[in-house]
Structure formats: structure tokens, C-alpha cells
């Protein structure tokens, strides 16, 4: 279970670094936070899981998405 979660987290982290689209990267980071919150809950650290879910998947995603909204695309799709 935990190995599966960690592997998915690793894949999401690499994808977030390599993707050219900032929005895709942000959503990958948000999913990463959700999975790591699940991992913390599996490892019996519910306090950290609540923090990770609220900060990582919630507030920081909002901040990133709003920062990206203030930018313009440089390249043609």
C-alpha cells in the first residue's frame, strides 16, 4: 500500500517538474499532496495528514492557480 502511494507520488513529482504547462504541474502537485496526505493517514499520523490535505491540496493550489491566472501564455498552443 505505502509503496504504491510513494511510487505514485514520485511519478507525479517528476511529471510536475517536466511538464511545460504550469496548470498541469499545479494539478499534479495538488494530487501529490492528496496522495501524501493518504500516506500520512496510512502511517498513523492524522495530524500531519490534515495539515497536508489543507495546505498542500487546498490553499497552495488556490494560490498557484491564481498566480498562473495573472500570467499570459508565451507560446502558441
Amino acid at each position: 500500500m505505502i509503496e504504491l502511494l510513494l511510487a505514485a507520488i514520485l511519478v507525479l513529482a517528476v511529471y510536475a517538474m517536466l511538464t511545460r504547462d504550469l496548470l498541469h504541474g499545479t494539478i499534479a502537485l495538488s494530487a501529490l499532496s492528496l496522495l501524501s496526505a493518504l500516506a500520512f493517514a496510512v502511517l498513523k499520523a492524522p495530524d500531519v495528514a490534515i495539515t497536508e490535505a489543507a495546505v498542500g491540496a487546498g490553499v497552495s493550489t488556490v494560490v498557484f492557480v491564481w498566480a498562473i491566472r495573472a500570467t499570459e501564455r508565451m507560446e502558441k498552443q
Binding site: D47, I50, T51, A54, G58, V59
Partner: peptide, 25 residues
């Protein structure tokens, strides 16, 4: 709830505060 019941259940000031912040958002 998370904020005020931090002494008996998982949670506490920081966690509850961040959840309150997402509620405000």
C-alpha cells in the same frame, strides 16, 4: 471543530486555521 477539539482528536490550531482559511477562500 478541528481547532477547538485539537486536544482530544487529531488537529489543532494550525490545522484548524488552515481549514478555516480554505472556508474563507
Amino acid at each position: 471543530y478541528v481547532m477547538l477539539y485539537g486536544h482530544v482528536s487529531p488537529g489543532g490550531g494550525f490545522q484548524g486555521g488552515v481549514v478555516v482559511a480554505s472556508g474563507i477562500v
